[in-house]
Computed example of a mutant assay.
Amino acid sequence: MHRIARIAIAALASVGMLASVAACGSGQSTSEKNGTIEVVASVNQWGTMAKTLGGDNVNVTSIINSTNVDAHDYEPTTSDITKLQKAQVIIVNGAGYDAWAVKAAQTANATIVNAAEVGGVNDGENPHVWFSADVRKAVAQAITRAYEGTRPDGKADFDKLNQQWRSKEDEIARKITETKRKADGEAYAATESVAEYLAGDLGLKDATPTGYTRATANESEPTPTDIKQFTDMLEAGKVGLLVVNIQEETELTGKIVTAAKSSNIPIVELTEQMPEQYDSLTDWMAALVDAFSKAI
């Protein structure tokens, strides 16, 4: 073989090896290569919204998917952190609910949507912001903007998906308006304030004893006086509804439920984490509004 030919072949081989190394070291996932946006949400209520708003244009991973897991106390795995670091869009709840996710997101090269911040809810306030109609709308807009910023060529599709989501949320708004007319400021009590925003949207007035509410919000034990005020109020029939977070059932909540049942006070059971049987946050909220409507 001529010397020039050997040099040419060696050069071509080197180029091929370099191209192979570059491809392996590019760090692009399959979804990035085909244009799909990698999205990671700390909890499934926001993850399902992210999927609804992104459709086939996104690949969404929700770190917490079960009502058996408490997001407040969750300890993320190395795999969870890796997922967050590789995401292009990250959705966290904020307001102290998922501090582990907020912290991990800060060092990621991603567009971050903090639901509480978007909805104007600060640390120290009720962090269960997905129960608020106003916050859901604000977060949906923020997610759509994040997608459009990541993939500008998909703007028309993202706008269409946003409009479809909004039409379903408008159906919930109509249910809320109808239920609010029925509620007419009716008093309710709750074992935990997880659904405070939803109850407010429905026009219900929180009559839970202040001491009890303060204790549960701070994750401390209510005093015997707090508990007696609560059960006496229920046994006297001073509220028209009891809201129970069945994700946090204890001997104390059992005593409260018993007091409500003794006075035939309707009970609405719910969880703070989205149950697995629902495919989307809007489906879950629609079901909860129906549950309140039947109880009022």
Rank of each mutant, 00 (worst) to 15 (best):
M1N: 09
R6W: 12
A8D: 08
I9G: 03
I9P: 00
L12M: 04
V15F: 02
L18F: 14
E32W: 13
K33Y: 04
A41H: 15
S42Q: 13
N57F: 01
V60Y: 00
T67N: 03
N68P: 05
V69Q: 13
V69C: 11
E75D: 07
E75M: 02
T78I: 02
Q85R: 10
G94H: 07
A105Y: 07
Q106E: 14
N109G: 14
A110V: 10
V118E: 01
G119S: 05
G120M: 10
G124R: 10
E125I: 11
E125T: 10
P127F: 01
D134E: 03
K137T: 06
R145D: 13
G149Q: 09
T150M: 01
R151A: 15
P152Y: 10
K155N: 05
K160P: 09
Q163F: 00
S167R: 06
K168I: 02
K168D: 00
A173T: 07
A173N: 11
E178G: 10
R181E: 12
Y188C: 15
Y197N: 12
D201S: 04
D201G: 03
L202V: 01
G203M: 13
K205S: 10
D206A: 03
Y212A: 02
R214H: 03
A217M: 05
E219D: 09
E219M: 12
P222C: 02
I227R: 00
Q229S: 00
F230E: 03
E235C: 06
A236H: 15
A236P: 15
K238W: 02
G240P: 11
V244E: 01
K255D: 07
A259N: 10
A259F: 09
K261D: 07
I265R: 04
P266C: 05
E272F: 06
Q273A: 01
P275F: 10
E276C: 12
Y278S: 14
Y278E: 11
S280V: 05
L288M: 08
D290E: 07
